[in-house]
Design a protein around this nucleic acid. Structure first.
Length: 870
RNA sequence: GCCUGGGUGGCGGAAUUGGUAGACGCAAGGGACUUAAAAUCCCUUGAGGCUGAGUCCUCGUACGAGUUCGAUUCUCGUCCCAGGCACCA
């Protein structure tokens, strides 16, 4: 190889360098990949964005972390799939379209263009040939196809149920989309509404999804714990309570069958089907109906209030305690939830706080059936429910039994006598996917008056979302009134029929997009099973922790459905998961103008002033960047000022990925300074090193400053490699490179010595290679300036370290006396313990602490320290 | 209330298996260069103490105990912060 001689600018100019290399990467399709069975694959995926129009710092952080890993793995020789696309359906498009008098599609595609541009400016190494938007018919066609398969298998079904309804968004929300009683999107209160909905039967997989949580070794425990809690498995019993003077019975689910002898009344959810039936003929019908009506209107946000009062109403009927025969009045209660268990609660006021409160309010009997282990039953206080373990009392033949044992024994008794059975209950609900919105994938069903809900025949897919519609104020879906779409014929009987006008929850699109990336243009199915077989599962998935439950759980569920259909042969789509922390910044508030954007603030030292009125503004707490708090930084502004490499460097250096990142203008400045420092360093050595090859001889051939630098270089390579490989701790990896750069500045190389220049070149190349994944533009430029082939850095090999060069021949030993450091000395690596002890004892300062004292013990920790115990 | 994280200098953060607490960066202070400033380069920087300003001493990783020759790291208890769940029977 002929080493070229390339000139080098004196000044680091990202504005020139960055577009240059982005153009090269684009033109070469440098990051395009194909299946190659001869190479080990690595699928790196970041959660794709909703095309809102602009990337924000959260995206920048997420995608930077991902890009560094992708580039690193490429340098390690992996065949890396690193795609990007758009989660393009969803409500903001409709709202924006109404506000700006455009079409959601036009708005969405314009946003995609703008954001793609921004991502390219960041220098991310995507295979852009795989890009797609989920709003494209050739994407959602296959989603509709899967829906039909699920319908066939009973995995998708139509059901009538109370749903979370947002009046503002005019649509249904999944439980996961309701946050503290409010809509996750618009923040308005959510109320209960009865509607016919399409559901996916995720509950069929509750147990499997739960079980596999513990096998997701590459996931943060935090996330699997959240999923486990969300699935919410409870073990208990289902028990049948006979209604007095009736052949009806009420089934309840309880986790505390051991407290059955203390059950003194029954609570039903207002929506419970027996409520009406049992209240008939009691003279209380009118009151009961009114109560049920009122509860249905009660919004979820009301129910969430702290002071939310337990309320109930006796419905005029009794049931019988199967153990004691006691007449238990039946109530409807607002705290009983129809969605959980059987919608009926056996109330044991002595041992459940809610039941206790309810009993107190309505003057119902409280019967103690468990006493604490160390308290006789007479002394049990009755100021609150006793929910701990204890010994059964007043419980017939089970009295004196430990309550844990009694749970088993009583359940067995029920099973023998056919009064109940062991039961498991999950908190997880089926996934309601119907949305009364326009901008989503149409549900491929046709409603026929004689045939009912009929699936659209496969050959008629996709059911294309019509573009020519009139968007309506208030957000009602225009599909219902678009006759050209709605009116059709029944595929079964040929008679006139109407299309389903609901569209699918956008979480459906994001539940399989990672498979689509494997063969994004495949037109004979959801994906090419060969390609998916090669690339999937995703080796490393990266995204915000806000998707810990919904998106990740749905994706795990969909993968199971695909496996059962026979399209994939794995259950878990994401082998490793990294949830990056939030990007935060302090808020600034003017007493008159409220929160201020950074560009509306003027600083005098640390003191901000309002840009409108010049008053002193108050610095608030450090919080997650959000438009409402105006503590946001626009990535474009940073790109203009510092360039992509600086932004990338700062995002990685300021904190480890999983922790939150506090924004600091000075920190960014520091990153920029570091890049300049590297530039100047290499510029300084440029002439001396461009005609030599990096030193690759034996460390034994070196001495003095050259040897030290060579050793530091290899130590740095080792440190950076393990920091990235084992824990993605880029912050410490970068600081290691900073140390090396400092050492290079300090190195007093004797240029008369034969190896000095090549040792320096080795150090320079190492810095470039180690930083290549982090700051790809400046490193490509420097790589070229050193005479290497232009544009080839991203496919260069990650540097290797030689162990023998990382180890120095002497060790710095610390001497402690009774665990306190009293001295330190250098010792050769092969010194034996006795020699080390002797040297330690000889230390002048150590002697001051050992003189005249009994030496009890001397502990020598190899290569580290000596501790003298006196 | 329950479940997860977390608490280390003026600040962001290091310390990978129990072994020199504070790497690296920021900020601050000092010096060099300059007519000057910026930029750059170098030095200092946890707090306190001092007979011999040192290869010095004491204290110090939210707080209180414990295990250990030795604890930021392990155990128990307490406090605070962040996130998640929240009438789930």
């Amino acid at each position: 190889m002929n080493l070229r001689v390339n000139p080098m600018d004196n000044r680091y100019d990202p504005k020139r360098i960055e577009p240059k290399w982005q153009t090269v990467w684009d033109a070469n399709k440098q990051f395009k990949v194909d299946e190659d069975p001869s190479r080990e694959k690595y699928y790196l995926l970041e959660m794709f964005p909703y095309p809102s129009g602009k990337i924000h710092m959260g995206h920048v952080r997420n995608y930077t972390i991902g890009d560094v890993i992708a580039r690193y793995k490429r340098m390690r020789g992996f065949n890396v799939l690193h795609p990007m696309g758009w989660d393009a359906f969803g409500m903001p498009a409709e709202n924006a379209a109404i506000a700006n008098n455009t079409h959601p599609a036009a708005w969405t595609y314009a946003n995609i263009d703008a954001m793609r541009e921004q991502l390219k400016r960041m220098g991310y190494s995507y295979d852009w040939d795989r890009e797609f938007a989920t709003c494209a018919p050739d994407y959602y066609k296959w989603e509709q196809w899967l829906f039909l398969k699920m319908l066939e298998k009973g995995m998708a079904y139509q059901g009538e149920s109370y749903v979370n309804w947002c009046d503002t968004c005019q649509t249904v929300l999944a439980n996961e989309q309701v946050e503290a009683g409010e809509c996750w999107r618009c923040g308005n209160p959510v109320r209960q509404k009865k509607l016919t909905q399409w559901f996916f039967k995720i509950s069929d997989y509750a147990e499997d999804l739960l079980e596999y949580c513990d096998r997701l070794a590459g996931w943060p425990e935090k996330v699997t714990t959240m999923q486990k809690n969300w699935i919410g498995k409870s073990m208990g019993a289902e028990i049948r309570f006979q209604v007095e003077d009736s052949d009806r019975a009420i089934d309840v689910f309880t986790t505390r069958p051991d407290t059955i002898f203390g059950a003194t009344f029954m609570c039903l959810a207002p929506e419970h089907p027996l409520v009406r039936a049992l209240s008939r003929g009691t003279g209380l019908e009118a009151d009961v109906d009114a109560f049920v009506e009122r509860m249905a209107l009660q919004s979820r946000s009301d129910r969430m209030l702290e002071n939310y009062e337990k309320e109930g109403l006796f419905i005029g009927a009794w049931c019988l305690n199967p153990m004691t025969g006691r007449r238990m009045p039946i109530y409807i209660a607002n705290f009983a939830l129809m969605e959980y268990g059987t919608g009926a609660v056996m109330s044991v006021p002595a041992h459940d706080q809610r039941d206790f409160d309810f009993a107190k309010k309505y003057g119902l009997d409280i019967v103690v059936v468990i006493r604490p282990y160390d308290t006789p039953v007479e002394q049990v206080a009755r100021t609150e429910a006793y929910v701990e373990d204890g010994v059964l009392v007043n419980s017939g033949k089970f009295t004196d039994m430990d309550n844990k044992a009694a749970q088993e024994a009583i359940t067995d008794y029920f099973e023998k006598n056919e009064l109940g059975r062991k039961a498991v209950s999950y908190r997880l609900r089926d996934w309601g996917i119907s949305r009364q919105r326009y901008w989503g994938a149409p549900i491929p069903v046709i409603h026929c008056e004689s045939c009912g809900a009929v699936p659209v025949p496969e050959e008629d897919l996709p059911v294309v979302l019509p573009e020519d519609v009139d968007l309506l104020e208030g957000g009602r879906s225009p599909l219902e009134t678009t006759e050209a779409f709605v009116q059709t014929t029944c595929p079964k009987c040929g008679g006139p029929a109407r299309r389903e006008t609901d569209t699918m929850d956008t979480f459906v699109e994001s539940s399989w997009y990672f498979e689509r990336y494997c063969s994004p243009h495949f037109d004979r199915g959801m994906f090419d099973t060969g390609a998916v077989g090669y690339w999937m599962p995703v080796d490393q998935y990266i995204g915000g922790v806000e998707h810990a439950v919904m998106h990740l759980l749905y994706s795990r569920y969909f993968t199971r459905v695909l496996k059962d259909i026979g399209l994939v042969d794995f259950k878990e789509p994401f082998t490793r998961l990294l949830t990056q922390g939030m990007v935060c910044k302090e808020t600034v508030q003017c007493p008159e103008h409220g929160f201020l954007y950074p560009e509306e603030t003027r600083y005098d030292g640390d003191q901000p002033y309002c840009g409108f009125c010049n008053q002193k503004a108050a610095v608030g707490r450090v919080e997650k960047m959000s438009k409402s708090k105006k503590n946001v930084i626009d990535p474009n502004v940073l790109l203009d000022e510092y360039g992509a490499d600086t932004v990338r460097l700062f995002c990685l250096f300021a904190a480890p990925p999983e922790r939150s990142l506090e924004w600091s203008e000075q920190g960014v400045e520091g990153g920029f300074r570091f890049l300049n420092r590297i530039w100047r360093l290499i510029n300084h050595w440029h002439a001396d090193i461009q005609k030599v090859r990096p030193f690759d001889g034996d460390p034994g051939e070196l001495d003095g400053a050259a040897k030290k630098l060579f050793s530091k270089t290899h130590q740095t390579i080792k440190k950076v490699t393990t920091d990235i490989e084992e824990r993605f701790h880029f912050n410490t990896a970068i600081s290691a490179v900073m140390e090396l750069v400092n050492a290079m500045y300090a190195a007093e190389l004797d240029m008369a010595h034969a190896h000095s220049a090549s040792v320096m070149r080795h150090a320079v190349e190492s810095v470039i290679l180690l930083l290549a994944p982090v700051v790809p533009h400046i490193t490509e430029e420097l790589w070229e300036a050193l005479g290497n082939e232009p544009g080839k850095l991203s496919s260069a090999w990650w540097p290797a370290y030689r162990e023998d060069a990382t180890i120095s021949e002497t060790r710095l030993m610390v001497v402690q006396v009774n665990g306190k450091v009293r001295g330190r000395f250098e010792v050769s690596a092969d010194a034996d313990d006795d020699a080390i002890k002797e040297k330690a004892m000889a230390d002048e300062n150590v002697r001051r602490f050992t003189e005249g004292k009994d030496i009890k013990k001397i502990i020598v920790v190899k290569d580290k320290l000596v501790n003298i115990v006196v």
